[in-house]
Amino acid sequence: MTMPADDKKLTFLKFRDQSTLGGEMLMYSLSKQVAALLGLCLAGISMAADYSDGFVADFRPDFPAAVKGEQCVAPVEVMRRNHMMLLFHQRDRTVYFGERATKYSLSGCLSCHTQRDTQGAYIPINAPGQFCQSCHSFVSVKIDCFECHATMPRQRAVFKRTAVDEQN
């Protein structure tokens, strides 16, 4: 007997989530563990040296605020820690099942967080100091999303092969 289509999909999805965890997320969870260990070391050092309360300085990346919207798709604390999980999950649902809801999609991020320059033109979100890049360089996590994905919202492709060829 065949399973109902939706059950089959969920099984498949479960598999994909696990395999995602096994693959690229391995690096992520490894880095988490390393961070935890580093945190422990830091605590140890601070205890040994008996620094004053001000030891942990006011570190934070400097990134521009969202252009529009009052509230992100999830609470800030959730987004800070888990945005990659949400993105990975949405990504697989979109690629494999064609679910293009923008709630947790990368283009959803772009639509609120892309800045414009003084002329009103979009600035790529992976440019230095921009939303994605500022945080990711702060925590030294390289992302390769934008090797393929668009870095700014765009309604339609503006390029016409013949026109461009003639100009050049």
Binding site: G22, G23, L26, M27
Partner: peptide
Amino acid sequence: DRLIVAMTH
């Protein structure tokens, strides 16, 4: 760089 993908998928 995706050798790990080839090992896990």
